[in-house]
């Protein structure tokens, strides 16, 4: 079976682990628990009738990607960069972080995700989309767009 490594990264407490849990186990917890190091698990999805194993790396949140060990990026096919729609500081390093990721993994598929959509108003979302241009707006709590996000990544990786 074909497998692809997908790295979930971003600042602390933006909901990386919640997205991971929502997609892999379809669960959610409101309690914030800091991630230490890295947790890896997989889910097999079907793309165009073929199984694809998405191996997700949920890594500890760092304020800047400069602090993320380079070995974590080894062999990654896609990177999901998550920021918290309700905390503007989590998008402060967006541009420089994306530049760094592109430098480490040239040609890698990158998706920018604004999470915690359930915590912000429509008005705020409009401003946010203009300023940060995220690829997806998700809510790990309600599950909104989580499946769509990963399935789109899977499809793009197969087509890639």
């Amino acid at each position: 079976m074909t497998s692809r490594k997908v790295l979930i990264t971003g600042s602390f407490a933006v909901g990386k682990t919640s997205l991971f849990h929502r997609f892999v186990y379809n669960t959610f917890s409101d309690q914030y628990l800091t991630t230490i190091g890295v947790k890896v698990d997989k889910r097999v999805v079907e793309v165009s009738g073929e199984p694809l194993s998405l191996i997700l790396w949920d890594i500890a949140g760092e304020v800047s990607q400069k602090k993320v060990p380079k070995t974590y990026f080894l062999g990654a096919s896609a990177v999901i960069y998550v920021f918290d729609l309700s905390r503007k500081q989590t998008a402060d390093n967006l541009k420089s972080d994306l530049k760094l990721i592109q430098k480490i993994l040239p040609g890698c598929l990158i998706k920018v995700v604004g999470n915690k959509k359930d915590l912000v108003s429509e008005e705020e979302l409009i401003i946010l989309e203009r300023t940060h241009n995220p690829d997806f707006l998700t809510s790990a709590k309600t599950g909104e767009n989580v499946e769509t996000l990963f399935m789109e990544i899977a499809s793009e990786l197969v087509a890639y």
Partner: peptide, 8 residues
């Protein structure tokens, strides 16, 4: 090296 791998 991978430090603090949460093992399933």
């Amino acid at each position: 090296q991978f430090r603090f791998v949460d093992s399933p």
